[in-house]
């Protein structure tokens, strides 16, 4: 829209009562006072925790099925990651899938929780979990290797179901 077109609309025909200003202030104040008695929205964080819905994008995790990761180390997630947070090094395995990630590392300081890795993965092997408590005291702690990334499939079933229902 051009600047000329967006004119400011002022209500000119205020009634006398409105122009007196005081009744309007009283109206506003009754609203504020009424608000004081409505329930609060605050979550008392350390005691109460927010339980995110399945659509929530928490930290990305690797799905572990029958004791091994689903990942086939194709490297697509690493390629698509806009923050360059993922490092995958492939290795060979005797299993049917033939390849597995020897090293899989996500730098949680870099990750921006965009979910591209999850979207691009052909094996549904990397998905966004519901974990959001990620605070580190030094950068080394933020490098999540396979030990921290692997999560049994049962724990992320809600997210998997959500993904299926939206495919």
């Amino acid at each position: 829209m051009s600047l000329e077109k967006s004119t400011i609309i002022r209500k000119k025909d205020l009634s006398l009562l409105e122009r007196l200003y005081i009744p309007e202030i009283v109206k506003g104040m009754t609203l504020t006072i009424r608000q004081m008695f409505t329930p609060t929205f605050t979550t008392q964080y350390p005691e109460e925790r927010f339980q995110p819905p399945a659509s929530f994008r928490g930290r990305p995790v690797l799905v572990e099925e029958h004791g091994v990761e689903r990942c086939v180390a194709c490297g697509l997630c690493s390629r698509v990651c806009p923050a360059l947070a993922i490092e995958v090094q492939a290795g060979e395995t005797e299993l049917g899938k033939e390849r597995y990630p020897e090293k899989f590392e996500i730098n949680m300081i870099r990750c921006i929780f965009c979910g591209f890795c999850e979207e691009v993965c052909p094996e549904e092997a990397i998905i966004m979990s519901q974990e959001y408590e990620l605070a580190f005291t030094n950068p080394q702690d933020a490098l999540f290797g396979k030990d921290k990334l692997l999560v049994p499939i049962e724990k992320v079933q809600t997210r998997l179901d959500f993904l299926r229902s939206n495919r």
């Binding site: 608000q35 004081m36 609060t40 929205f41 605050t42 008392q44």
Partner: peptide
């Protein structure tokens, strides 16, 4: 405190 109550906070 009062402003918090007005804004539905704690």
């Amino acid at each position: 405190r009062v402003s918090a109550f007005i804004q539905n906070r704690v």
